[in-house]
Amino acid sequence: MLEIEEVSIRFGHNPEVVSDATFTVNDGDRLAVIGETGSGKSVLLLAALGLLPASARITGSIRLNGRELLGCRERELSQIRGKEIAYIPQGSGNGLNPLYTVGRQLCETIRKHRPCTRKEALLQAAALLESFGLEHGEDLCRSYPFQLSGGMRQRVLIAMGIAAGAELVLADEPTKGLDRRRITLVEDAFHRLGERTLLCVTHDLRFAKAISSRVIVMYASQQIESGDSRSFFEEPLHPYSRAMLEALPEHGLHANMGFAPPRQDQDARSDCHFYDRCPWRSERCRNAPPMLAVGERKVRCWKYAD
């Protein structure tokens, strides 16, 4: 459905923030892109939406159902966003207009992409809200965003994202800044997306585990591991992925990896980007490792070369 091929992104003359990202999101996939702040995951998502600022330089190709998105005109892109791609913004962000009722905002989105009467749209909106576990959809339509709790607002945003009938959902850190209880509600809403294809960028491992069927890990602008969700969370391959899982409070809150060295120019490096912090490093890690296949999974680490 969504094919990302050799995509590299940089801002102006700064070093690359995404280098050579290549992956496909198939119909019905639920893909989580995991990485820390600055690993380039959000930039990649914005690139797929065509929302990067003009100073960004993108090479490679991003195709939606075979159609090239890079270099598309803004008019076409805004048609595609909403109708074919739904976008769910960050959890703590205020994606709703405080001056209009929830119903009005939902109807607007519905009618923009599928002409119908106000009344029909309102019924649809209410049904949509109820399908996300929000009770009394019609009452909810009449309320203003400030009357809702944070968790409700986030679910309304998710409903609004897909109101126009998009089959591909892109979510940018949907749990950022939310507390555990609200994260659970968002997880629930994501499960209710049903058959829709999902690409979700997050730094929240628990959330990724709960909602994804496949994961990609990014570190310092590169993909370093990809594979199906279950085997990843059972046995991560890359030393960075392992360190992440071990650092979870429920897995012991271990901090057994060194501090990252000051950020440097990733372009100039010829060694593995993880070299300075890697517990397994050896001489051959002076050369950048390629993505190696391990069964169905892939990992960027020399340890799996043999």
Partner: peptide
């Protein structure tokens, strides 16, 4: 640590 990734979180706690 609520705005940090898990590894940074573990480092701070440590």
């Amino acid at each position: 640590t609520s705005m940090l990734d898990v590894i940074s979180q573990a480092q701070i706690i440590h």
